[in-house]
Every structure is written in C-alpha cells, then in structure tokens.
Nucleic acid binder design. Structure first.
Lengths: 233, 233
DNA sequence: CAGTGGTCTAGACCACAGT
DNA sequence: CTGTGGTCTAGACCACTGC
C-alpha cells in the first residue's frame, strides 16, 4: 500500500470515527510531513483527496477543517425519518427492537462489504407516526469505521439520526423496490401480510469507507419518495 | 488558471469532442511534459484526474486509453425503458394502447400544469420484456411545448425514447411509491389485482417549460430503481 | 528486458488571508 | 508581515507488463 493512501486512510479514519469531529482543524501539512516522515507533496495528495470527497474544507493561512454535515436537503429528508414524520404534522416516536454486535457473516458482507472477521452492529427498530408504525428499519453499521457506535445504546436516538450528526458522508446509493410485506414485517408494521410496501435499501460511504447499510420498509401508502434529477452531461 | 487544470481541460476537450475516440491511446506522460514544457508530476496530476472521472484507463508499459462510454447512466436508465429491458438481456417490445389529443381538464392540469385550454397529448402504452408485460405507461405531453409530438404516431417509437431524442430536458422530479395493482393495471400487466407495484411519477422540465408527466407502473419484482446521491455541501 | 505508469523527494515560488 | 495552502520542478527508484 502506497504511503499517500495510508495517510488518506488514517485521516479518513479520524474523521469518520468522530475522533476529529466536524469543525476540527486537522494537522497542517508540515506537521503531517513530520509525522509520516515524507515530503509535502505526498501529504498534499492525501489531503486533496479528502477535499474532493467533501470530507474537509481548506482555508489559506487558517488550516484544513472537517466539514460540517449539511442541515437539510432532499437527501437528508429521506435520511432522517423523525424530521419526515414531523413534517407531516404527526407525533414522532422511535423504538429500538434489537441491538447486537456480531462478526460479519458472508450474507452480511454482501450487504456491507467489510473485511473478513469485521465486526458489525446490527440494529432493528421501528419509527412511529402518531400511534401507527411508519417504518421498519434494519441496519448494519461498520464498527471498524464508526467505533463510537459501539458505546451508543440507540435506545433513544435513532441510528440514522445519530449517524447523520456523527459522520460526514460523501456518497449514498439507494435501491428502491416494491414488494409485499413479509410475515415479520407485517407483524411489526401492523399491516396484513402481502400489503404492498416500499423498500429502500441504502448504502452510505464516507470517502472510501463503507459506513452503513440500511433496509427501510414503508407500508405502501404511507410514504412517497421524491427525487430530483438533472441530466448527466 | 493553473497549468494542470489547463492540461486537464485540453485532454477532456479532445476526448469529449471525439477527436480522441474511445480506445484511442492518448500521448504518454513524457510526451505531454514536452508539449506543455512542464514536469511529469504536473502532467500526472491531470491524467490521474481523468482516471478518477472514468474518462481514461491506464495500463503499465502500454499507455493511457480513452474509455469506452458507459452504456447507461442511472438517470438515463430510468428514462429509456427499451434500453433497460435490453440491458437485462431480454427482447424488448413496445405497444401503443391509446392516443388522444384533448383539452386539458382540471385533473390533467394538476398533473401537468399548462394554461387553461392548453392541449395535451394523452398516451397509454405497454412495454414488454420478452413476452411478459414489463411496464405500463400513462403519459401526458404538453403540445404547446413540444408541438412536434402531434405529428408523431407513437405506434412504433415509445414516447419516452422519442422525447429523449427530441427535447433536451433540464430537470426532472420523480415521485416513487408502492401500491397494489388496480384492476385495470392488473389486467394490462397480466398480474393479479393487488400485486405490489412500484409506481414512478415523473415530471420533466426543459428550462421553465413543463414538457411531460408520466406514470410508470412496474410489477413489484420486475424493477429496482437505483439512485446515487451526494450530500449538498 | 525495455518502457510505461506509480510513487516519492526536497526543495521552490506564489497568492492569499489573518494578525 | 507571517503562515498557510496551491502549485510546480527536476530529478529518482520501483513494479509491472507486454514485447
């Protein structure tokens, strides 16, 4: 592994893990050259990569700072279910159903590619709109990338919300499909088995690190996903 | 403007314009250093940027080659159903079910805001994957914005495909939801009533003009919508 | 084995923004 | 004015790969 990649990974790790929170001023280039005993070009290559992925912002004479995650956007809207429910004028409630830390199985690693023997946090929770279940959430979090998640109970704060505050993400992929509710989903969402549901499967990256994989199941009529597109030029 | 950016622009220009077609071997780094009278690092910075953006591929000892263009972007994929079906390795067939020109009713104008008395082209069609119905399409086209549509029968060419060729669109809004198939949709898609379906409702603009409104109904398991997102910084 | 890309160095000068 | 990032140089060594 080349040196600038190692530096990039180290920096990413510090940011994604939260050791360097949003707003934190990361070491100057000349400090990093000392720390890694290399030339400034090498350090620069790594830091510029972080800039491109949006994890940091640089200001001359001032330094390089960890980006502050954005407040609101079409993307965020579908990230923070609490805000979504409240935007609909309903009371929001969150409930943790299960929380386990496990070594990633092959099935897990298909959803969230981590190294063999990587440790994942598995969460299952429900979001309510008023008194009715609004959304079922099944989430995997890569603890290698976000070790702080291990010390968070997620009994009060929803994992999506927590991650948004914690981790400045740089890319996400959504897969959206319709399917009938499984018996388990039907029970948890208090709907009949086979009721049409919208399923959103989302992977989120921070630079090159896989952060989390989440499966959101919405009873068909409770949710509409809106996305704006512009043509690829 | 910095030198490596100018080099990058020149290279991009040669590629995008087609002067350097896909597969073309672009000049070696040492040739570019001569051409631009600069060091290899500077040239390298520009070329590596091209690699990141996917425009070129590099092979040691061989050279740097212009990439063959990606078949489909995520956006285009959901615009042209014919290409989508063929990408799945199935035979594609298109069928026009109904075609009428009407004055916009109030209901119509809710879907596609046009002036009072505006004339719309209403189309209903089916897309097949092999012998099975793949997608049901119900479309409104604003004839004030696209008068050419009036002289197109749409009996052979699907309206989505025709519009893509005809109109340079600038923005689109997708609303996505899951629902059970209506009796009419079930009959046309040859599925049971109530089968979970993915519904995509799309409005498309060209500059400020509303071009078209389309409702696409996919049998739940036949379709998955993929969207890439990046946070708004 | 020769030529390409991949990486790195130890400097340098400059523009710019805080102090 | 000072210190930061932004850019660039003129070399160097290495790994890989296609001839």
């Amino acid at each position: 592994m080349s040196l600038h990649k190692r530096i990039l990974q180290d920096l990413e790790g510090n940011i994604v893990s939260g050791r360097w929170p949003p707003g934190y001023r990361i070491p100057f280039e000349h400090e990093l050259t000392e720390q890694y005993q290399c030339s400034r070009m090498t350090v620069n290559k790594a830091v510029m990569q972080l800039v491109r992925s949006g994890l940091v912002q640089r200001r001359r004479k001032s330094g390089t700072y960890v980006s502050i995650p954005k407040g609101q956007s079409a993307v965020l809207e579908i990230q923070d279910i609490g805000l979504e429910v409240e935007a609909l004028g309903q009371a929001y409630r969150y409930e943790l159903l299960a929380r386990t830390e496990v070594k990633a199985t092959d099935d897990d690693r298909q959803m969230l590619p981590v190294g063999k023997g990587g440790v994942l946090l598995k969460l299952q929770c429900r979001h309510f709109s008023g008194s009715r279940p609004f959304c079922l959430e099944e989430r995997l979090i890569n603890l290698a990338a976000v070790p702080e998640a291990s010390s968070e109970s997620f009994s009060v704060v929803a994992p999506g919300h927590w991650l948004l505050k914690q981790v400045p993400w740089s890319a996400a992929e959504n897969k959206i499909r319709a399917t009938g509710a499984s018996s388990k989903a039907a029970r948890l969402l208090e709907i009949r088995e086979g009721t049409p549901c919208l399923i959103i499967e989302r992977r989120t990256w921070s630079a090159e690190n896989h952060i989390t994989h989440v499966l959101l199941t919405y009873p068909g009529d409770s949710h509409e996903l809106v996305a704006e597109f512009a043509p690829a030029r």
